[in-house]
């Protein structure tokens, strides 16, 4: 299960890098050097990715050509807006080290740090 999840990420990586629709066979060949995988394994994983909405596909003769449904940067934007969003009810499952602040608030935080931080040892600067 864990390995399949990792394989999903590897395959998505390749398809994002290529930026064009690809056949299962092409993916198998591209991955062969790093990890020789059975055609059916790759096909199953890509079919799963299609079912989960990560890949879209269209017919090419008797095979399918797959490509990512959205660009990597689109997913990144969505992920970060989920993570950095301001709706606390959307953040139950996430625990941040600290939330991003306005520049003004961040400045206040810096001042608070400067006030309480013990002054640097004289020898520290050298």
């Amino acid at each position: 299960m864990r390995q399949l999840g990792e394989l999903e990420a590897v395959i998505m990586d390749r398809l994002w890098d290529w930026g064009r629709p690809a056949l299962v066979r092409e993916v198998v060949e591209a991955l062969h050097e790093d990890r020789p995988l059975a055609y059916t394994t790759v096909m199953t994983v890509m079919d799963n990715l299609h079912r989960k909405g990560w890949l879209r596909r269209e017919r090419d003769g008797r095979a399918w050509r797959y490509e990512p449904a959205h660009s990597r940067s689109a997913y990144t934007v969505a992920l970060m807006s989920d993570a950095l969003g301001t709706d606390p009810d959307r953040r139950t499952a996430l625990a941040h080290f600290v939330l991003q602040m306005s520049p003004h608030d961040a400045e206040l935080l810096q001042q608070a740090l400067d006030q309480v931080r013990p002054p640097a040892e004289p020898g520290e600067a050298s």
Binding site: F97, V98, L99, Q100, M101, S102, A106, L109, L113, R117
Partner: peptide, 16 residues
């Protein structure tokens, strides 16, 4: 404490 300030400071204006 220092990491708090670094991670709270916005790289670009965003939600706060």
């Amino acid at each position: 404490a220092t990491a708090l300030v670094i991670l709270a400071t916005p790289a670009t204006p965003g939600p706060a």
